[in-house]
Design a protein around this nucleic acid. Structure first.
Lengths: 335, 335
DNA sequence: CTGTTAGCGCTTTCAG
DNA sequence: CTGAAAGCGCTAACAG
């Protein structure tokens, strides 16, 4: 398997290296006939240009990075799918980095990506909002960053989000309308944009309806399944057991179902629940789970489009916030 | 932001480029003191070596590709997680390619990856088993390929699989034991290894129990949700409605639940069902779904480990088949 | 329209 | 122990 590169092609065609290079990149200064010859041989030998040589020279990787806190989760999976579909069309490659909700890893990845391996980054933050040097660093190095879902307000860039505050507000009111007065909030309690917005939506809905919030009803989930099981079990066995649960993350809702099953609690008789979730099986659960569903695939697409807008057209990334709407999907037992 | 590269470091330190390079790669021929100086400055300036230059020179990308048919699916998500975790530890990067079950895309990706962008490929096949030129091509170009789940028997390499035949066999017998005599098989009908093995397991279980298979009970699912909905609806409204369903893919089982809900059919009264599935919510469905659950995360890890074994140790990839065991998890309604 | 040439940033012989 | 220099494969001035 002798190496087939631009040089060997040139030799075989009795052309110079640069002519071959130009022919392959369809330069206007190459004759139609020459182009034809070059292309033909390239196809015959299945010539594949070395991406590293090209990237090194052009200072362009044709690759983007996606940095997400986790992947075993329908939301992020759908987002990736949306990103991939757009990237594919643009002939870009997609590198995946999973932080496991660990902001130290997020920082390490960002620092690493200062090296030019990617042309841009799509990111949903793990870290806290005040911890943003690594992001600024990327931007200073001309690596555009587009945020989705877990954005960072302080950074001036494109942000694709959903109406978290409003969704949480209406979701909470939905529970109130169902007669719940004692409503717990389960979420990842960080200074994330979404954590804050969802929590505020819940709090404001409670306030508007003149319901005091029991401090113990604001529960922090880590994402760790065993740990969260314990925390939620404690909540559901306490003297303060809520009659409504607002789950700001899908994971929390599932743990509630599991704990309820183990404790013999009945949903919705013992407590009602609504959750942010992209579960395909929400309607098939017992009982069906009412959800606030984010347009995950669309978020991925929009984020990717925004990034490519910058990468391809250099239109200068603006500090825009694109807000997509989540849908509150009410599901009731048909039984 | 002046460029910080090996050259600028060398100048600042009054050393030659090669010394700096060697110091950074911890070469034994560099003095301890010099190494120290170099490392310190590199850290101070947050020097990040250009990966393209390095890859070009070393002919090594420190990147692997994962080619999968789809992603919005718990099995592949968990596999990716397993792969990522191993890759991370090895300081490798992971490129994701999704074929959407389209073998033309699989071929295109493989051909593209002949260019050296990745050092190895982890793959679950979309295409048919007899269509393997693109894989052989990779191997000829010294890009090792490790298969997982949807493997290709004809190719001599490491394959990580689960006991599909046995699982399908016992899964089918499980339905028979529950009293089903008329059992349908829903799967992606290709010449894939897993399609074949699962189908054979089902067929042999039926044969062993002296049950004739109604031809119309072998149903091909495309993966397209609307299309499969129609196909399964047709099955469940036909005169030949089965009393048992063996779903070889999770997606098919979910569609069955959806169709059943829409038609007002009750599971398990009207038909029983068991499915290959990695759904976290299997036990929470109404009714709970009995599953054959593959050790997805573990599969990802093993596949990645096998690939890195080859990449790091050049131990020569062997034609090994590693079979992990799936678990048949029986779930019954507690109601 | 085509060729010559100088690098992109790094690794690695080969000399000292 | 350190330096000089070649070159990975490709692109893009600059010449003709």
């Amino acid at each position: 398997m002798e190496e087939v590169n631009i040089k060997s092609l040139a030799k075989k065609l009795n052309l110079s290296i640069s002519t071959v290079s130009r022919a392959l990149s369809d330069s206007y200064e190459i004759g139609a006939e020459t182009k034809q010859r070059v292309r033909q041989l390239a196809k015959e030998l299945n010539y594949q240009p070395n991406p590293f040589a090209s990237s090194l020279r052009k200072r362009k990787s044709n690759t983007i990075a996606v940095i997400i806190p986790e992947i075993a989760n329908n939301f992020f999976t759908l987002v990736i799918k949306g990103i991939e579909d757009i990237a594919q069309a643009q002939e870009y490659h997609v590198l995946i980095y999973i932080t496991h909700e660990n902001s130290a890893r997020e920082i390490a990845y960002c620092n690493h990506l200062l090296n030019g391996r990617v042309d841009g980054v799509l990111m949903s933050m793990s870290g806290e909002m005040d911890d943003i040097d690594h992001i600024n660093s990327l931007i200073e190095h001309h690596v555009p960053v587009v945020f989705f879902d877990r954005i960072c307000e302080q950074i001036s860039t494109v942000k694709i989000i959903t109406d978290d505050y409003e969704s949480a507000f209406t979701g909470t009111e939905h529970l109130i309308a169902k007669g719940c007065r004692s409503i717990a909030y389960l979420g990842i309690l960080k200074t994330h944009s979404i954590s804050k917005n969802r929590l505020h939506g819940y709090q404001d809905a409670m306030k508007k309806n003149n319901i005091a919030i029991d401090k113990q009803h604001i529960v922090s989930c880590s994402g760790d399944i065993d740990q969260d099981y314990q925390v939620i079990k404690a909540l559901l066995t306490s003297a303060h057991r809520p009659t409504g649960i607002f789950a700001a993350v899908e994971h929390a809702a599932l743990v509630c179902y599991e704990v309820a099953a183990d404790l013999g609690l009945k949903i919705p008789q013992d407590f009602k629940i609504i959750s942010f979730s992209n579960l395909r099986t929400a309607s098939l659960l017992n009982p069906p789970l009412s959800t606030i569903t984010q347009p995950a695939y669309h978020i991925g697409q929009e984020a990717a489009k925004a990034l490519f807008g910058e990468l391809k057209n250099r239109n200068g990334i603006e500090n825009t916030k694109i807000t997509l709407r989540s849908s509150l999907i009410e599901r009731e037992s048909t039984a």
